[in-house]
Computed example of a mutant assay.
Amino acid sequence: MALTFYTNPLSRGRIARWMLEEVGAPYETVVLGYDAAGMKAPDYLSINPMGKVPAIVHDGRVVTEGAAICAYLADAFPAANLAPPMADRADYYRWLFFAAGPVEQAVTNKSLGFTPNEDQGRLAGYGSYDRTVDTLEKALAGRTFVAGDRFSAADVYVGAQVGWGLQFGTLPQREAFTAYWAGLETREAYKRAATIDDALIAEAAA
């Protein structure tokens, strides 16, 4: 089955790249720029009308959004063993989509300088940045993996959020975060993905 990956190395596409490397299936990469000839071109907008990356097309089926791509690939390639059995997926779904929802929203709003007041926090899915970060910390404290006793697609997405947050200061340097990320950044699939994307960045800058 054909698998095509649309991305930019300076984007959330790095999360999907990591997941693809964990899956181990062959895929074609299409690198798009942030312009009318890239993500805003008609051909790509027919795949993702949002004009954003990442996106994958797997045997004619389109999947967008980083967390959805992680979950889809785990199910599409079960031999990679990146999703728990159905009876054990409560934490897997919970923290995968907690990172894609509240964490992503809280970090983005804080980076943009928006802090909701108490009334606004009732409307916001994440409530407040501090509460979201504290909840994530409790989920990761003393754990090697976020969902059960083995690595899963949830660790790709949650781990990418934590690693990015520690690197760029959008998450505080707490022991639960640094210890969790230290256990993930040495994975061979992560290192392969980072090497590929970093080479693309260097090539574009040359």
Rank of each mutant, 00 (worst) to 15 (best):
3 L>F: 01
4 T>L: 15
5 F>N: 03
7 T>W: 06
9 P>C: 15
11 S>C: 11
13 G>D: 00
14 R>P: 13
14 R>H: 13
14 R>E: 13
16 A>V: 09
17 R>I: 00
19 M>W: 01
20 L>F: 07
24 G>K: 05
30 V>G: 02
34 Y>G: 01
34 Y>M: 00
37 A>K: 00
38 G>R: 02
40 K>W: 12
41 A>Q: 08
42 P>W: 07
44 Y>T: 07
44 Y>M: 12
52 K>L: 13
54 P>V: 02
63 V>K: 05
66 G>W: 01
66 G>F: 01
66 G>T: 13
68 A>Q: 03
69 I>M: 04
73 L>H: 03
75 D>V: 11
77 F>V: 05
77 F>Y: 02
77 F>C: 04
80 A>S: 03
93 Y>M: 05
94 R>V: 03
95 W>N: 01
95 W>Q: 10
95 W>C: 01
95 W>L: 03
96 L>R: 13
98 F>E: 07
102 P>M: 13
104 E>S: 02
104 E>Q: 15
107 V>Y: 09
108 T>A: 07
114 F>N: 11
114 F>I: 10
116 P>A: 06
116 P>M: 04
118 E>P: 09
121 G>H: 10
124 A>H: 06
124 A>W: 00
126 Y>M: 10
127 G>T: 02
130 D>L: 15
131 R>M: 12
132 T>D: 12
132 T>A: 08
136 L>C: 15
137 E>P: 11
142 G>P: 04
142 G>L: 14
146 V>C: 11
149 D>R: 06
161 Q>M: 15
162 V>M: 05
163 G>Q: 06
166 L>N: 00
168 F>E: 10
169 G>Y: 10
172 P>K: 00
176 A>Q: 09
181 W>R: 06
182 A>H: 07
183 G>Q: 09
185 E>R: 15
188 E>H: 06
190 Y>I: 11
191 K>T: 11
196 I>C: 08
197 D>R: 12
197 D>M: 09
198 D>F: 10
200 L>I: 14
202 A>D: 10
203 E>F: 00
205 A>G: 10
